[in-house]
Design a protein around this nucleic acid. Structure first.
Length: 220
DNA sequence: GCCAACGTTGGC
DNA sequence: GCCAACGTTGGC
């Protein structure tokens, strides 16, 4: 088992079923099947997702008396700088995690904090497997409706890679997003703003590369 | 702490 | 299957 962490990951909800998707989003485009191909992943456009953005809270916040804080510094401090990304309780987010392949990269995003934004890069080191915290009554993300015979929730393991050369604030990403929406550009459809509450989201390589290039640019 | 957006639940 | 009520996310 990877380091046990209290990772922040979001959301509670329930129902559904185990491994086949269930995607409650009323949203038009994303309709996808559980695990399958990258192809299945993206609704209408032919975008390929092989990069990710994962949110976690770097500041203390107590849920049922348990601190859910888990920032990039916490990840860095773990043995192997590796952790499981447990606690995701949203079908869309789970389904995206199930699409992740070993070796792919993800941005570590700090949410619900003073300075929300992207702080670093991590790598998927273990593909989706059962999130044991769903059966742990003491865990913040315990899900009484999940059955061990048919677990509902999955997680992946991720490993710290590096910090970005500079912090990329949400506000700056938003400016680019708005700009690109008007004039065209790689961030015009980025889920960070089109699906603001999704805690695990895919990025196209264009989106990922553009964001990464910002670390060498002056802040807006 | 507020609150908008939106996902989930459950009555019908 | 609709939809109102409720709960959560997360920026501000």
């Amino acid at each position: 088992m990877p380091p046990k962490k209290k990772v922040r990951k979001r959301t509670i909800n329930s129902d559904g079923d185990a491994d086949n998707e269930v995607d409650s989003s009323p949203k038009p485009s994303l309709k996808r099947k559980a695990s399958s191909s990258v192809e299945a992943l993206e609704g209408t456009s032919a975008k390929q997702y092989c990069r990710w953005l994962m949110k976690s809270e770097p500041e203390s916040r107590f849920e049922n008396g348990i601190d859910v804080k888990f920032g990039i510094e916490d990840l860095k401090a773990l043995p192997n700088q590796t952790s499981c990304w447990d606690g995701v309780r949203n079908y869309q987010a789970r389904n995206f995690m199930c699409q992740m392949k070993e070796g792919q990269l993800a941005f570590f995003y700090h949410s619900n904090c003073k300075e929300p934004g992207i702080v670093g890069i991590m790598k998927i080191v273990k593909e989706a497997y059962v999130d044991h915290t769903q059966f742990d009554k003491k865990d913040v993300h315990y899900d009484a409706r999940s059955n061990p015979e048919k677990p509902k929730w999955s997680m992946v393991d991720i490993q710290y890679q590096r910090m970005l050369k500079r912090f990329l604030p949400l506000s700056e990403l938003k400016e680019y997003h708005l700009q690109h929406r008007t004039n065209g550009g790689p961030l015009k459809d980025i889920m960070l703003f089109t699906r603001p509450r999704l805690s695990v989201q895919p990025l196209t390589t264009e989106e990922f590369d553009f964001i990464l290039s910002l670390e060498d640019q002056e802040p807006l």
